[in-house]
Design a protein around this nucleic acid. Structure first.
Lengths: 253, 253
DNA sequence: TCATAAATGTTCAACTTTGTTCACGTGCAC
DNA sequence: GTGCACGTGAACAAAGTTGAACATTTATGA
């Protein structure tokens, strides 16, 4: 058997079984463990598999996402994380969901338990947060010009595409909620957000408590048009009460 | 038996079996191993098969396992780099450039010296290769459904957007160039490539030498419609000469 | 923490494959 | 016939591949 041929067989074997030990491979192909080790080293440098102590592991099988999610949940549950968890609980099978840019939306992927959901976003970090679970969701990124500060794609290209898409739910993360208006720092990004809100059935504004009663540079939507304002429990509930006249306020409390 | 006749038989044998050793071939054709070696050397320089220690291996795509993007990136790095350098030299200030997915296109950023260029791509790796130089270029990513294997955004969303954009130059990286057709592995990705080619003023096909005379699953464009085929210098120029009747072939030689 | 076993990398010798060189034979032109 | 070009196979030195021995590192459990 040719060396290269043998290496292909090893790669195939490891991919089939997810992982294999050096001795297993050696027996299967009737070569010494030393030869297997040398082959594994070559295959590893070619990124055909992952060399681990005792054998090798397939790179195509992503075996660990569940663990990392549980780990994440047990780790410091921040305020943003609480808000993301509420948002995730609103998503149901069959939904077509738009997620805007923002760190809170990046956390939704970790909390989303249901499948059969179509996710649409114009945020590269949000997109990446879903990527390792690409097999469980239909995932679409809205392209356009890139704004590095927020990781969002904006501009006419993004707006054009968004204006042709109808979603069932849109989650918009904002910098400020004040006087019946929601706002953020960048006009172009705000325009894109507005288009997303205009083309969805259910509008959810996501904002941790620190954003309430703040106003940022560009106001882009009317709070009364929003279905729900999702925020976390107030130590002082006055802020939340202020906004409940415009919309339903959801908190973890 | 004529020498040429025998070499064709060897090529056929290797393609049928995926791989064959020098001794196997020698026995099958009743010639000495030395003769087989000399034949294999000729066939290898003509890219009819791949010479490996102990024998030879078929180059037909079905015989090889599907390679991941990372594996591909490590393949023929210097050759791809040469090709990328030629491509970069064709880009001028004022151009609106489309770069398709492909490891060769990922290398263009590093070689691009001029500014005032608008870059449009549907490939996340290509996009990332330009990101650190975002201040020097206008950079736009075409979104859509994501194909993890190639890092490309495809599907109707991507096609819609692309069909509305007019570029001055498009660089398309392909898996195969054969019989006046260019091809790659994925039909959806091929469709997106075709749209990009349909909407540009200057069409450049980028392919290192290993792609010539290969055919992959999905043919998506006519080579005669292409302005230039960019490849690297052949040790044996026969392959390149074959394609120069359809298009201008550029090499580093 | 330490002891123990398992796995690893290094080195070397045996073996295989390779390329170089040369000799031989065939076919063809003169 | 002679000379020449060419393809072929054999001999041999060089290079590559393999498996075993052994020292080192890593994992695991007491």
């Amino acid at each position: 058997m040719l060396k290269h041929e043998r290496q292909l067989l090893i790669q195939k074997l490891v991919n089939q079984r997810g992982a294999a030990s050096v001795n297993e491979i050696g027996e299967a192909l009737s070569v010494s463990p030393m030869t297997v080790r040398r082959d594994l080293e070559v295959l590893d440098t070619h990124h055909a598999l992952l060399r681990v102590h005792g054998g090798a592991q397939s790179l195509t099988m992503k075996a660990l996402p569940e663990l990392s999610r549980i780990q994440k949940r047990n780790l410091n549950v921040s305020e943003k994380d609480e808000v993301a968890q509420i948002a995730a609980s609103l998503i149901q099978p069959g939904d077509i969901v738009y997620l805007g840019p923002g760190t809170t939306n990046e956390l939704i992927a970790a909390h989303l338990l249901v499948g059969d959901v179509r996710m649409i976003t114009n945020s590269l970090p949000v997109f990446e947060s879903f990527q390792e679970r690409a097999d469980q969701f239909q995932l679409q990124l809205i392209g356009g010009s890139y704004r590095a500060r927020s990781g969002a794609f904006i501009g006419s290209l993004a707006n054009d595409v968004l204006s042709h898409l109808r979603t069932t739910k849109a989650f918009i993360s904002v910098n400020g909620v004040k006087d019946n208006a929601i706002s953020n720092a960048n006009p172009e990004e705000g325009q894109t957000q507005r288009i997303a809100l205009d083309n969805t059935a259910h509008r959810y504004v996501v904002a941790d408590l620190s954003k309430l009663n703040k106003q940022d540079f560009y106001s882009f939507y009317d709070l009364s048009q929003v279905d729900r304002l999702i925020t976390n429990p107030a130590i002082n509930r006055n802020d939340v009460a202020t906004y409940s006249k415009y919309t339903t306020v959801m908190t973890t409390a």
